[in-house]
Amino acid sequence: MKAGVIVFPGSNCDRDVAVVLEAVTGSAPAMVWHGDHDLPELDLIVLPGGFSYGDYLRCGAMSAKSPIMREVVKAAEAGTAVLGICNGFQVLTEAGLLPGALMRNRDLNFICKDVWLRVEDCASRFTLGYEDEQRILVPIAHHDGNYYADDATLERLEGEGQVLFRYVDEQGEASKAANPNGSRNNIAGILNADGNVLGMMPHPERMAEAALGGTDGRVLFESLLDTLS
């Protein structure tokens, strides 16, 4: 599997995800500068976390207009796997690759903590290594992760099985108390209709090593390796 990480000005989880990709795939991913006009041949494109363009205007709004994003959109439409983490998820919604928007957290504060997620579908290329409805522990670190979509979109996402991760409590219930940021339907991550683009607010790359608190996030990268190699 050949992976690439898009580096925007202000990305700050680009190295973190590159470290995990290298550990899982055995080779360092291509680091692709936002101003480039060409993408190398890739099986997986990662839009990393961070504060691209300082979150100015709206989170992800300026990055979505970067030259490289035209190529990312083309690749996504051609079926290449795309993973947007945190700010990457915000960029994907701004670029129109995923529906909905990420608004300011319900309590208005930045939140950095481990949260429980439920894997809603383990048939996707991102989640093959998990079990259905498996509860996993992954950190969030964001100020704007409050997922919003209108009723019709929400219904479609739920109906088509595009909600891949949901915030749950320790018992696996998608309760209000387990919802850290006010996201509709406790949504933490969604797929596009074709199933090749995933946006998620939690950071799987931060839970890919026991010394950092767990390995639940690593499984996502291993799943991609299994499907894309």
Binding site: V19, V20, I111, A141, H203, R206, E209, L212
Partner: peptide, 10 residues
């Protein structure tokens, strides 16, 4: 400290 990103850089 939950308002500080204390994990970035891995």
């Amino acid at each position: 400290w939950e308002q500080y990103d204390h994990m970035v850089m891995g």
